[in-house]
Design a protein around this nucleic acid. Structure first.
Lengths: 119, 119
DNA sequence: ATAGCGGTTAGAGTCAGGTCGAAGTCAGGA
DNA sequence: TCCTGACTTCGACCTGACTCTAACCGCTAT
């Protein structure tokens, strides 16, 4: 079991942010110690890593919450959850493509700077 | 010469957003018609595309403004501007790497859903 | 000449995603 | 017993990037 600060460290989040996620309903799976402190299992940690992955690829908190809600509902939602992931995968590919295009423009700009001393 | 709405269309921005960029000092290069309307040359359009590229790769408006300010100062700032671009290029590569990592996790998740009907 | 369209401004409002501070609880140590 | 430190809640606040509103101007077509 990990404390909030350990998880914060491991997932590169602040303890504040983890509490905020909890408040937003993203962490219904975490348990509490007898004195009310959040405690995180290895499995919770993995889920939080997944949440970070979705967040870092632009999924809004609300949509992540929906996914987690489906997860908590049990195995009979696995088809829907698979769909969510497949759709989101497409979105990530789109982002990578756009990033590549932008990288090309940046490279072009740099090569302009390299080719002529003036301008 | 293009009108604000034509540029909005061409650059996938709203006219609102273009005015906002102008207010933030990102578009000091645009001219006005005799009745005060913004008009955009081909060159302005190219610069706006560059601004969008920088914005879409996560450069804050403030930093973009600084770059544009350097640009307006003239050719003697080209070394600094090149530096900015090279540094930002690194940042874009970092983003692509992170995106790839996240894509791997998503793929892993999808393959879990594919391999077992339960969970 | 007037309606409509496309533009103008300043400034307020919105939204996501945190971030902070105050005030409180609890466990363990000097 | 009191202190320290780590946690708790709640609500206010902040930032970035828009987004919208209200009130206005000036050209053009009917």
């Amino acid at each position: 079991m990990y404390t909030i600060n350990e998880v914060a460290e491991l997932c590169d989040l602040s303890a504040h942010t983890i509490r905020y996620y909890d408040k937003e309903g993203l962490l219904p799976f975490i348990t509490r110690t007898k004195n009310g402190n959040r405690e995180f299992s290895e499995q919770s940690l993995e889920l939080i890593r997944l949440i970070c992955c979705l967040k870092n690829t632009g999924m809004p908190i609300k949509d992540i919450k929906q996914y987690i809600d489906l997860l908590m509902e049990g195995t009979h939602t696995s088809d829907v959850r698979r769909r969510v992931m497949v759709d989101h995968r497409k979105e990530v590919l789109r982002q990578m493509n756009e990033l590549k295009k932008n990288l090309n423009l940046i490279d072009l700009k740099i090569s302009h700077y390299d080719s002529k001393h003036t301008h």
